[in-house]
């Protein structure tokens, strides 16, 4: 019998600690599958963030470092500079990446650091119990925006891909979502591409996953997917924001 689906080798056997309907499991798997398919596992080091995926070093079966909140791109810079012969990725949430770690991600991208960033945007702080994130939508209620995010008071959500795409150095920036099987198939291609460019030392690559947080949004899993499609996708538009391979390869 032919095995057509199995657990990626780049994931450990540890059971995920994520809530039902959370998409971290999918994004972990996509990164691990890309590592497997590209044969990168034993040449790769990852950095996990502070947030729900703080224990990701238990799940990715490669060498891993646990960063302070927001500092993953700085750690990754140190790791890649120390071991230029290895491949490095970071896995970060929205509060980590575009609130407390804004300086680190902007400058790592601006230096064109040779690593991949996987950015999970679910518009909320999951692990600390559902507080407002830099990507929380206008009007969205969280435990620290109990009357709904007031953009006049606290500003609009930040679109990380669009912001980073203004920089010269980044090689590849794409926003995908994990909200339906079709979306996941597209996301898989984007993750593969980012890791392939990583392996080929082409430069800084960045994938944003529009993700869910049913627990803190207060929706059942299926309702959370629908809510995200209706509310997040109009604001966080899917697509490729930068792809230098197109000009390099003359496609």
């Amino acid at each position: 019998m032919e095995i057509i689906a199995t657990r990626p080798k780049s994931l450990t056997k540890a059971q995920f600690t994520y809530c039902p309907g959370c998409t971290h499991g999918i994004s972990h798997r996509l990164v691990a599958e890309a590592m497997d398919e590209l044969g990168m596992r034993n040449k790769t080091m990852g950095v996990c963030p502070v947030g729900c995926s703080v224990l990701a070093y238990n799940f990715f079966d490669c060498d891993m470092a646990e960063a302070a909140h927001g500092r993953a791109p700085a750690l990754a810079t140190g790791m890649k500079r120390a071991r230029p012969d290895m491949h490095v990725f970071t896995y970060q949430g929205d509060g980590d990446l575009i609130a407390i770690g804004t300086a680190e991600i902007v400058h790592a991208a601006n230096r064109g650091e040779h690593f991949s960033v996987f950015f999970v945007n679910n518009a909320i702080y999951g692990m600390t119990g559902g507080q407002m994130a830099p990507t929380t939508l206008p009007g969205m209620k969280t435990t620290t925006s109990p009357y709904g995010r007031d953009e006049k008071d606290i500003g609009y959500p930040i679109r990380a891909c669009e912001l980073l795409a203004t920089l010269e150095a980044p090689y590849y920036i794409e926003r995908v979502s994990l909200l339906s099987p079709q979306h996941v198939i597209k996301a898989k291609k984007a993750v593969y591409k980012a890791m392939k460019f990583n392996k080929e030392e082409r430069g800084f690559t960045f994938i944003e996953f529009v993700s869910t947080c049913p627990t803190n949004w207060g929706y059942e899993p299926m309702k959370a997917f629908e809510w995200a499609k209706e509310n997040m996708l109009p604001f966080f538009k899917l697509g490729v924001f930068k792809d230098k391979s197109i000009e390099e390869e003359g496609k």
Partner: peptide, 21 residues
């Protein structure tokens, strides 16, 4: 390797990453 970092916070975290290697 010399990197002029964006902040002292970034610099010490680069040290953390490199030292981890």
């Amino acid at each position: 390797t010399f990197v002029q970092s964006e902040s002292e916070i970034a610099a010490i975290n680069m040290v953390y990453g490199a030292s981890g290697c």
